[in-house]
Write a protein that binds this DNA or RNA. Structure first.
Lengths: 129, 129
DNA sequence: TTTATGCGCAACCAAATGGTTGCTTTTATC
DNA sequence: GATAAAAGCAACCATTTGGTTGCGCATAAA
């Protein structure tokens, strides 16, 4: 949160690091989505909303031991991450699921897993040669 | 963080909620893994480590503008989530990737997505009838 | 038109997070 | 044995997070 200080010996080769940074640029955007799912309550909310039906805040609160405002805060976190949309109808605001950020996360995970699998098979090929 | 207070009207039907809670028990365990990836720096670290090679803390620090201790803290977060293991060899401790928690996360995401897809196709079938 | 329900806003709080700095310890290297 | 490198430990700090409470405002229901 503070700015970077010294102690870092930033003087070394910078080209490779720049390249690595531009490669990672895509991933870093997914961090908020992962963070949004980094909480039990939110995981449960998403699971519930993925059933297709939209739910009002009060409805979602009735299923939990937390206060309405706590649930509201969690929903806003999910909303900022784009995982959920709120539509106000009458006096209640209903939340509905949006699967798109989830696909991005899937993407990251499979990419990482594939890279790992490839590394493993390279190792295996080398050992078995 | 505090305990739950009143304001919650916990007096209503409890059977369904208990059922829902036992269903969600599996997911909630995944929250720490999601949280561990909920940070740019950690996403980049994981991507780097998934190449198969283990890296020492200093090596990983050289690729970043943060201090060594900051990187260390991030690595410990990943380690607590089981995404990464540290093996001390000589004076350096090398971190290596462990893909298993990632598979669990994949599992959650595909489950949720599938539930969503099923809901969509039910809706479609209903409309097209 | 009262009354009840659903929600938003704001203040407040404790704990967790993400970062720094300084110092010590352990292990290589000269 | 002296020096340098890698890592650990601990204190400190500001900000974020996850929760509460109280109150006011719309909107629906009696």
């Amino acid at each position: 949160m503070k700015a970077a200080g010294p102690n870092n010996s930033r003087t070394s080769s910078d080209m490779l690091q720049k390249r690595r940074r531009s490669e990672t640029a895509q991933w870093e955007a997914r961090a908020p989505a992962f963070a949004a799912l980094g909480d039990q309550t939110r995981l449960a909310l998403v699971a519930r909303l993925s059933s297709g039906q939209p739910y009002s805040i009060s409805q979602l609160t009735r299923g939990s031991r937390l206060s309405r405002q706590a649930i509201t805060k969690h929903l806003r976190v999910l909303e900022r991450a784009g995982i959920v949309r709120s539509v106000r109808t009458g006096r209640e605001s209903r939340f509905e699921f949006d699967p798109r950020p989830l696909a991005d996360m899937q993407d990251y995970l499979t990419r990482v897993s594939q890279q790992w699998d490839q590394a493993l098979s390279r190792l295996k090929a080398f050992v078995e040669k």
